[in-house]
């Protein structure tokens, strides 16, 4: 009887606490977010351990899968030499993976050296925990200098921006998510707009001036007006321009430059301009653009 009363009391207490949490979340949203963010710090450290383990398991599975597919063809070609070929194919596969990884790292390193920004290389270790946001998880967090609102790129172009960090990992909201907005610029016409994701998994350049002569095929780059990205990083190409009668602006659909379904390594822009000289150069460039007819 005592046990039953105690369970009832605990249940009632848990329900009251849950109700209080809901009230706090709705009445004091920013304070509650701050508190949850603070509490999430040590939890993130704990969560990073199984995350890293599962991530390495994921890589192991994909490598094994690739190897299996490759070996299927070889076995059909020559059954007698199967064991030798399997061995060779396995080695070959490992070498190919190493070469592909080296090439990727080389491209990333070249881009990092050429870039005027200060960056941190990170690896994609997972995808958003829900089906509702287009996001990826990186293996670098606050301990590596990664903070919220920093831009994320690959040598091909813009990937997205950091929206959440903890000590050992961070969450990137991809450029194709409807909640993302980046200041963009049409390279040919120099018209500025806002790049937003769409519910179809693409991006859209909004608020293009009505008189602008943008057309499909034009390339969109970052304008550098927001803090996360330096000027001139590729976002994508315009595929369709929409101009409705009565609207104040045009909008255009963008095919992102980066294949966001196959992200492996990325760079997080910790400082868009490494030194004051680069920032000064950018300011001059902007002023030069504005003076141009």
């Amino acid at each position: 009887m005592a046990i039953s009363r105690s369970t009832y009391g605990t249940r009632r207490l848990a329900i009251v606490l849950f109700a209080l949490l809901l009230v706090a979340l709705f009445l004091l949203p920013s304070q509650s977010q701050g508190l949850l963010q603070y509490l999430g710090g040590p939890l993130g450290q704990i969560l990073s351990l199984p995350l890293a383990a599962f991530s390495s398991l994921d890589r192991g599975i994909s490598e094994t899968w690739d190897g299996y597919i490759a070996l299927q063809g070889v076995r059909e070609e020559n059954r007698l030499l199967r064991r030798e070929i399997e061995l060779l194919q396995g080695q070959n596969n490992q070498l190919r993976n190493s070469v592909a990884a080296t090439l990727r790292y080389e491209t990333l390193l070249n881009f990092k050296q050429q870039s005027s920004s200060r960056t941190v290389a990170a690896q994609v270790i997972g995808r958003d925990a829900t089906n509702w946001y287009r996001g990826v998880i990186l293996n670098k967090g606050e301990n590596d200098g990664v903070r919220a609102e920093m831009g994320v790129v690959t040598p091909a172009g813009v990937v997205g921006r950091i929206v959440k960090t903890n000590s050992a990992s961070s969450v990137v909201l991809l450029v194709t998510d409807p909640n993302n907005a980046i200041a963009g610029l049409v390279q040919r016409t120099r018209d500025e707009g806002i790049v937003e994701g769409t519910s179809h998994g693409r991006a859209r350049l909004k608020y293009i001036p009505l008189l602008s002569r943008v057309q499909p095929g034009d390339r969109v780059v970052t304008s550098g007006l927001t803090g996360a990205f330096p000027r001139g990083l590729a976002v994508g190409g315009l595929t369709q321009v929409e101009k409705s009668e009565g609207d104040l602006f045009q909008s255009a659909e963008i095919e992102p430059e980066v294949d966001l379904s196959k992200l492996d390594e990325v760079l997080v822009i910790t400082a868009p301009y490494e030194d004051a000289e680069a920032a000064q150069k950018l300011l001059q460039e902007i002023h030069g653009d504005r003076k141009r007819p």
Partner: peptide
Amino acid sequence: CFQDMLSAGDLW
């Protein structure tokens, strides 16, 4: 709580 830490949505 754990899912919120690994998702781009709000923390609640």
